[in-house]
Design a protein around this nucleic acid. Structure first.
Length: 508
RNA sequence: GGCCCCAUCGUCUAGCGGUCUAGGACACUGGCCUCUCACGCCAGAAACACGGGUUCGAGUCCCGUUGGGGUCACCA
């Protein structure tokens, strides 16, 4: 079935977005698989813009889709040139520029070709002109509904020989009685005893093709070997098969992928529950983690294999159509978050520092490179999203702290004991000559010991005094990163604040 | 409603007739580790939708039922 892949057949897959909205996880999964297949077999990954619907065209969509793709690291071998993109969307300002031997790679710039094919189909008798107005079609549909019949075009113009110079559409004649099948590479053989579709429009009255015509013509012209698309296309696949047959063209291998579902079990779509890919970036997800999870939503590495984290190279090397699942799957944010944490922990430290700096900057925190560097390893192993960095490290980079004494007194020690802890800590810290992590630890551990307190309780007090936070990287490392002067200053501040609070409470 | 697709723990999945008292991962619960939070480690709870066949034997093959999804546009 899927073994039409051999050395003679060059694998060419494509990503064919329509600029009617943003890119979401469902779309990414489909095209990531297509990309993996091309990479796996040393083939080509083609980008084609399917902008035949001028009414739903969204300016800026092309650019955002390409940027998201770039962020994900899904690279393109063939596609529109910069001029083609610019012509497609005047608002486009990006610098993407692909090109290739089968251009233009934008459908609105290929309409002559579709028209030519449509005319040929009419001449051969596979298609016909139809001048029924939208009003007529609507009325027909309503009458059918009233009679509880399935709605659909009656085929009124099939034999009317509508002249070419009137405003018309071109429809494909669908042989209702004929049985037809598709050997799908993931679903297996799909059989239609009779095609329950009505004569489908191929060329609209504005001269633009519908998806059905354009996709067949382009996939053929661009020598696409494997078509990966969502299973929502299965029901119209007979139209495409009929077209390939009428035109005498070789069919590509079809891979209809199961849907990606939201947490509610409903198909993810631009209209329903889907998040824009760029939102993942904003929320602190890594592209590698997102792709790794998506790989596993609908594909598995095979029998007995329990590996879940794959490098890009491993993904490419191991990807196979055979292991694609047939059933729809829910996209789990929980698992994505876990996986993102894994990727963050495995990240080279230098990259983590860069990412951390960027995300802090976004949060309005100007970092001190030195301090960040000291604390980074401890932050890296405790977060799941990059966006958790600012909250965890902000104590290092702000002047003023807002200390939550309520928590200090409740989870730590009552005011007078807290005060005692801080005074002793201050005194000891001031006495250290070599300000190292181990020295800090050694010294601070003496505090609860001398005062006969529980270690945890005492450290809650110190932690809040020094960082103003309940949750921080390890205490001694935090103090070290902060530096001796600042640490001492903060202890003094806390002591003063508690004293005044304390006395006020007594007076009151 | 017609047509089509699908069906293993809450979720992602392994399983391609016997080795399944159904394995892994996320999430969840308990414990250990521990200066907070994480990480890590150990343990636990948790699934073959149902009914018929086929077979010596069915999670695995066939049929039906149920359930979910998709699609029936001059949208993709």
């Amino acid at each position: 079935m899927a073994d039409t892949i051999d050395s003679k057949n060059i694998v060419r897959t494509r990503f064919a977005p329509s600029p009617t909205g943003f890119l979401h996880v469902g779309g990414v999964r489909t095209n990531f698989y297509a990309w993996l297949l091309a990479r796996r077999f040393g083939g080509k990954f083609v980008l084609r813009i399917e902008d035949t619907d001028r009414e739903r065209f969204v300016p800026g969509a092309v650019q955002s889709i390409l940027e998201d793709l770039q962020w994900l690291g899904i690279d393109i071998d063939e596609g529109p040139t910069a001029e083609e993109l610019k012509r497609c969307d005047p608002t486009y300002t990006g610098s993407f520029n692909y090109g290739g031997p089968y251009g233009p790679y934008v459908q609105s710039q290929r309409i002559e070709r579709y028209k030519e094919v449509a005319e040929r189909l009419v001449e051969m008798g596979y298609a016909y002109r139809c001048d029924c107005t939208p009003e007529m079609l609507k009325k027909e549909r309503e009458e059918q509904m009233a009679r509880r019949e399935p709605p659909g075009y009656s085929g009124y113009c099939r034999t009317r020989n509508v002249p070419a110079d009137t405003k018309h559409v071109i429809r494909l004649k669908i042989p209702e009685r004929e049985s037809i099948y598709l050997d799908d590479a993931v679903k297996g053989r799909i059989v239609w005893d009779k095609i329950s579709l009505r004569d489908t429009v191929l060329l609209k009255s504005d001269g633009f093709p519908t998806y059905h015509l354009a996709v067949v013509v382009d996939d053929h012209d661009m020598k696409i070997s494997h078509v990966m698309r969502g299973e929502e296309w299965i029901s119209t696949a007979p139209v495409h098969i009929l077209l390939y047959r009428a035109l005498g063209w070789k069919m590509p291998v079809f891979c209809h992928l199961p849907s990606v579902l939201g947490q509610d079990g409903k198909k993810l779509s631009k209209r329903h529950g889907a998040t824009n890919i760029s939102a993942f970036r904003r929320e602190g997800y890594l592209p590698e983690a997102l792709l790794n999870l998506l790989l596993l939503v609908g594909w598995n590495p095979g029998e007995g294999e329990e590996q879940e984290i794959f490098t890009r190279e491993e993904m490419i090397r191991r990807f196979t159509i055979e292991n694609i699942n047939k059933a729809a799957a829910v996209f789990s944010y929980d698992k994505l978050k876990w996986m993102n944490g894994v990727y963050i922990r495995n990240m080279p430290q230098e990259r983590f520092i860069k990412e951390a700096e960027a995300v802090c900057l976004d949060a309005g925190i100007q970092v001190d490179e030195h301090r960040l560097r000291d604390i980074a390893p401890y932050v890296q192993e405790r977060i799941k999203l990059l966006t958790e960095v600012p909250d965890m490290v902000k104590f290092l980079f702000v002047e003023e702290l807002e200390r939550d004494y309520g928590t200090m007194f409740k989870k730590g020690l009552p005011p007078d004991m807290s005060l005692k802890v801080l005074r002793v800590s201050l005194e000891k810290l001031e006495g250290i000559e070599d300000f190292t992590v181990s020295r800090i630890e050694e010294t601070l551990r003496e505090v609860p010991q001398e005062l006969d307190l529980k270690v945890g309780k005492a450290f809650v007090v110190i932690r809040i005094a020094v960082t103003g936070q309940k949750v921080t990287p390890p205490l001694f490392e935090s103090i070290y990163a902060l530096g001796r002067e600042t640490a001492i200053k903060r202890l003094k501040e806390a002591i003063e604040e508690i004293e005044s609070e304390h006395y006020r409470a007594k007076e009151g």
